[in-house]
Amino acid sequence: MLAATAVLIGGLSLAGVVVGSLAVAIARHVATVWLPSQWQDSITFFLLLALLLFRPYGLLGKPTRRTGI
């Protein structure tokens, strides 16, 4: 599930997967500075939601007709 999230966040390419995985991992662990660690999953999927809203094609992906915008 986390891996799928990472792919979606990064965008569907090799570089995207690397960036997405790093983003997910860093977000999950930096968040524990302010929040108890049981909220990690919430943070991860919240990140996914936010990303779907603003960059539905992923951080490194390119907009296509299917993903819109």
Partner: peptide, 28 residues
């Protein structure tokens, strides 16, 4: 109001994420 702006499979993924976040809130 937020997730319904997304289309088709993106909407499915968004509601999937929403479900996980809400269940996590219930859990934590």
């Amino acid at each position: 109001a937020i997730v319904l702006r997304l289309k088709e499979e993106l909407f499915v993924i968004a509601t999937f994420a929403l479900q996980l976040v809400l269940q996590n809130v219930m859990l934590n």
